[in-house]
């Protein structure tokens, strides 16, 4: 699910357009929600999907708790509603975040409980699936979900420092120790992007742009490595004890291939994958998502054409 801030509300420092979209939102910011769906023919235009968007509090609570058929419409008054609600139909949606709450969520003593909860669920029928109503009914009946799509994503609320100040302005103690600079100084999170992919074939190295087509040998291992920039890492300086340290997002990747080829995945924290096409016929498309540890996502693909 590609999530980005498309309209800024009254709070926080003004954000400027740049090479990366912003994922963290403050109250009254507006988000665009656009599922990334891939089938064997490639990317699916989300506008052709019959889907329902649901807002809830925490992963696993939008679609896996109670009925998805009988859901009230969201009132727009709660950042994370106590019971799931629906706020959009179709393949894409926008969501304007509710205003800052008058109190912290029940059971939480810090602002962290506020920022970790808002979650979006999306359930849809594939173009040749049983339709949205069919998928909703199957979910409720716990019947096989063939032909249905579903996902959940936690929405990023932040930056935390801005939110804490906002709560204080509303007379709410955010519960954070002022010395928690590591958290309070963290900048508004941006979605990482997939722009360049390094390709290593034996001793040869080439740099490919996302959505390029490269020629790879059939029986040789090929290493695909995501190239990242400081924009992806959202680096910032903060005090850690007596010292100043540069902190940045932790990035990780996932790869999918539309053909059954040999794949060797990298250890966590390393952004590469090794593949060998072998006897597979035709070009192979590699889809990749680059994620950071705050929910940011960026998507891309690369076509591998067989050759010498």
């Amino acid at each position: 699910m590609h999530v980005e801030v498309v309209a800024q509300g009254p709070y926080g420092a003004r954000i400027e357009p740049g090479p990366r979209t912003f994922r963290d939102a403050l109250p009254l910011d507006t988000l665009s929600l656009r599922p990334v769906v891939v089938d064997v023919d490639g990317l699916v235009d989300p506008d052709v999907l019959e889907g329902r968007f649901i807002l809830c509090a925490g992963l696993g609570t939008c679609l896996l708790r109670g009925s998805v058929t009988e859901l009230p419409a969201c009132s727009g008054d709660e950042l994370q509603p106590s019971t799931p609600c629906r706020f959009g139909e179709g393949g894409t949606a926008t969501l304007t975040m509710a205003d800052a709450p008058s109190e912290l969520p029940s059971g939480f003593s810090t602002v962290l409980g506020l920022v970790s909860g808002p979650t979006v669920g999306f359930i849809a029928s594939a173009p040749d699936g049983p339709g949205l109503d069919g998928c909703l009914a199957r979910f409720d009946a716990r019947e096989p979900l063939d032909g249905c799509l579903s996902m959940e994503r936690v929405l990023g609320i932040g930056p935390l420092g801005d939110l804490a100040r906002l709560l204080e302005d509303h007379g709410i103690d955010p519960g954070l120790d002022p010395t928690a600079e590591t958290l309070l100084n963290r900048p508004r999170n941006r979605n990482p992007g997939v722009e360049h992919i390094r390709v290593d074939i034996g001793e040869r190295t080439m740099m490919a742009s996302a959505e390029d087509t490269i020629v790879v040998p059939r029986d040789e291992w090929v290493t695909l490595t995501l190239e990242t920039t400081d924009d992806d890492l959202d680096a910032f300086e903060t005090a850690v004890g007596e010292q100043t340290a540069t902190l940045e997002d932790f990035l990780y990747d996932q790869w999918w291939f539309d053909r059954d080829i040999e794949v060797e995945e990298a250890p966590p924290g390393q952004l590469w994958v090794r593949v060998r096409v072998g006897a597979v016929q035709g070009p192979v498309r590699a889809h990749v998502v680059l994620r950071d540890d705050r929910g940011g996502e960026g998507w891309g693909w690369l076509d591998l054409e067989l050759g010498d």
Partner: peptide, 19 residues
């Protein structure tokens, strides 16, 4: 009976108990 896509993985959707 299916799954919900989550960041980094999938959450299984269970059918009725002992179905």
């Amino acid at each position: 009976v299916g799954s919900v896509a989550l960041p980094g993985g999938h959450q299984p959707v269970f059918g009725t108990r002992n179905a």
